[in-house]
Design a protein around this nucleic acid. Structure first.
Length: 481
RNA sequence: GGUCCCAUCGUCUAACGGUUAGGACACCAGGUUUUCAUCCUGGCAAUAGGAGUUCGAUUCUCCUUGGGAUCACCA
C-alpha cells in the first residue's frame, strides 16, 4: 500500500512572505492536493534572535490570501503536532540523546574563540575548514544543554532529485555540524529532519540553496535510520536583475502588498504556478482545479525564472476582464475613491462595467473613475495639448459645444439613442469624430483618458453631462477674452 | 578559493536525436467611425562558444565562458 502523500511548507517567522516562498508553498500544496494527501504548515522558529513578532500571522494571512489552505498547522492543530518547533524542544532533545547513545553525536569541546582560531588557520593555509578533523578522540557526556554536534560519516553521495535529476557531491561537504544549540534549540539541519519524519512527510520541496547541504541531511537520515523522503529542489525565483534570487533585502515585495494593490489571488496563483512550470502545451491560463490536475513536479524547470511584473499585470487584467460584473464588484468595492461613498451600488457597478476592460488591478480604480464621483476640475491643457483640438479656434469650440448641448438636451441618454444623437450631430456640424467627440469627452471628464464616450455619457447621466458642458462653455468664453 | 547547480527570443517557456526552433508577455505597425484600453491581423526577436558521438545535435558527452548557490550555535 502506498503511503499517503504529505507535503509541508515550513517557513521561519522572520518577516513576510514573498513570491518565492509562496511558490514553494504552492507547489507543495499542489502535490498534496492532486494526490488526495495532506498539506501541512509548520513554523520553524528555532532562531529566537531573528524572529520577527507577528510573522506567523502574517504568513498565515498571506497563504490564505492566495487560497492555499492546510490540513494541519499551528493555528488548527492536527494529529502530528505541535506544528511550531519551539513547542517541541523536548522531542528534539530526545532524538539528540538517541544519537548520543549511538555514538553519533557529541558535545562540542571547543569554545567560540577556539573555533574561530581553527577556522582562521585553515583559511590562512588555503584549505577548507572541516570540524571533523578536530573531532575529539573521546566524547564527554552531554548534559542536555550544551552544543551538540553530529558525528558524520563522510562519504560521497549520488541522489535523485525530483526536479534536478541526479545530483552528487563528495564527502568533503559532509562535516560534523551542530544539531543542538547551546540555548536548547535545535538547528534547522536537525529539527526539520526530525519533524519531516515524525510528521510522515513524503515530499520535501525547497529551493536551490539547500542543494549543497543535502549530503549532510542524507548522512543524518542514515544515522537516524530514517527512510528519506522524495527530495525536490526548486529553482530560484529571480529578482529584477534576473540573476540573483529574489530576496527581501533586495526589495522583494510582501505577498500581501499584492493584496493591497488589488491583485486577484487566482491570477497570482496562476502566475506563480507557471513560473518555472508548464504542462507542455501552449496553455497560459490555468484555473486552480486545472493546476491541481495538471501540475507535475517532473515538469518543473531547473533554471531560475525572473519574476516578471509585466506578465503578472497582463494576467491580472485578463482575470479581471473575464470576471462577471457582480463578482468583480464584490472584490473591487473597497477600492473605490472616497467620493464614491455617496453613490449607490448600482451606479458604482455601472462605472465598474465600463472600466472593466482597462483595469489591471483594483487600486487603479480611483484614478480611472474619479470624474464619475466628483466634479473634475477643468484643465485646458487637455485641449491645448490635443493634436486635433488645439488647431480649432476657441470660438468654434464654443459653437460646437452649444450645438451639442442643444441636441443632447433633446435626447434621452440610453446608449442606443445617445450614439444616434451623436452621429446626427456629426453630420450636422460636419466635424470629424476626432474633433467633436474628443471635445465632448474632454469637457465632461477632464481626464486624459476615459472609457468610451457613449458609455461614459450614459453613466454620468444627462444632468451631469449638460452641467459640465455648460461650465466648459463659460470657461472657454472667458479664455477667449 | 573549494564544492555544487544552471544556460533557447528582452522576459516566461515549448520542441521521442530529424520542426521554416512553436507559444505567451513586452515592444512595433495596421484595423475595429474620439482618447486610453480591449479585441483582431501582422512584424521584430533565441538555441553562449568550441570539440566529440551520430546520416543528422537545441536535445547526448567533454571542455571553455558566463551566471548563481553554498562553505554559521540562519533557515
Amino acid at each position: 500500500m502506498n503511503k499517503k502523500t504529505r507535503t509541508r511548507f515550513a517557513p521561519s517567522p522572520t518577516g513576510f512572505l514573498h513570491v518565492g516562498g509562496v511558490r514553494t508553498a504552492l507547489f507543495a500544496w499542489l502535490i498534496a492536493k492532486q494526490n488526495g494527501g495532506d498539506f501541512i504548515l509548520r513554523i520553524e522558529d528555532t532562531d529566537k534572535i531573528r524572529e520577527v513578532s507577528g510573522s506567523e500571522q502574517h504568513i498565515i494571512d498571506s497563504l490564505h490570501f492566495v487560497g492555499i489552505d492546510w490540513d494541519e498547522g499551528p493555528d488548527i492543530g492536527g494529529k502530528f503536532g505541535p506544528y511550531r518547533q519551539s513547542d517541541k524542544l523536548t522531542i528534539y532533545k530526545e532524538w539528540a540523546q538517541k544519537l548520543v547513545d549511538k555514538g553519533r553525536a557529541y558535545p562540542d569541546p571547543y569554545s567560540q574563540l577556539e573555533l574561530d582560531q581553527l577556522r582562521e588557520k585553515a583559511k590562512a593555509e588555503k584549505r577548507p575548514f572541516l570540524f571533523r578533523e578536530h573531532r575529539p578522540k573521546t566524547f564527554s557526556k552531554w548534559d542536555g544543554n550544551s552544543t551538540l554536534r553530529f558525528k558524520s560519516d563522510p562519504k560521497p553521495y549520488v541522489w535523485q532529485d525530483a526536479v534536478m535529476g541526479e545530483l552528487s557531491n563528495g564527502e568533503e561537504v559532509i562535516d560534523d555540524f551542530i544539531i543542538m544549540k547551546n540555548d536548547g534549540y535545535p538547528t534547522y539541519n536537525f529539527a526539520h529532519i526530525i519533524d519531516d519524519y515524525l510528521m510522515e512527510i513524503t515530499h520535501v520541496l525547497r529551493s536551490q540553496e539547500f542543494i549543497s547541504s543535502t549530503p549532510k541531511f542524507l548522512n543524518l537520515y542514515e544515522a537516524l535510520e530514517f527512510e528519506r523522503p522524495i527530495l525536490a529542489t526548486l529553482p530560484f525565483v529571480m529578482g529584477p536583475d534576473g540573476k540573483k534570487k529574489l530576496s527581501k533585502r533586495d526589495g522583494a515585495k510582501d505577498i500581501l502588498d499584492y493584496k493591497n494593490e488589488g491583485y486577484s489571488p487566482e491570477a497570482l496563483l496562476n502566475f506563480l504556478a507557471t513560473l518555472g512550470w508548464n504542462d507542455g502545451t501552449t496553455q497560459e491560463i490555468f484555473s486552480e482545479k486545472e493546476l491541481i490536475e495538471k501540475f507535475s513536479i517532473n515538469r518543473v524547470s531547473r533554471s531560475g525564472a525572473k519574476f516578471d511584473e509585466q506578465r503578472l499585470l497582463w494576467l491580472n487584467g485578463h482575470y479581471i476582464r473575464e470576471m462577471a460584473l457582480d463578482d468583480l464588484f464584490n472584490k473591487a468595492k473597497d477600492y473605490f475613491p472616497e467620493e464614491a461613498t455617496a453613490f449607490d451600488d448600482n451606479y458604482k457597478k455601472n462605472v465598474l462595467s465600463i472600466i472593466q476592460e482597462r483595469l489591471k488591478f483594483y487600486s487603479e480604480i480611483p484614478s480611472l473613475t474619479r470624474f464619475f464621483f466628483s466634479e473634475p476640475s477643468a484643465d485646458l491643457s487637455l485641449i491645448e495639448g490635443n493634436k486635433q483640438l488645439s488647431k480649432i479656434e476657441p470660438t468654434t469650440l464654443v459653437e460646437l459645444l452649444e450645438a451639442s448641448i442643444e441636441k443632447l438636451e433633446a435626447s434621452t441618454f440610453d446608449t442606443a439613442k445617445l450614439s444616434e444623437t451623436l452621429n446626427t450631430l456629426l453630420e450636422e456640424t460636419g466635424q470629424k469624430p476626432a474633433i467633436l467627440f474628443s471635445l465632448i469627452r474632454v469637457v465632461t471628464t477632464w481626464a486624459p483618458s476615459s472609457p468610451g464616450l457613449v458609455e461614459s455619457l450614459n453613466v454620468l447621466g444627462k444632468e451631469t453631462v449638460l452641467r459640465r458642458m455648460q461650465k466648459a462653455v463659460v470657461l472657454l468664453e472667458k479664455h477667449k477674452a
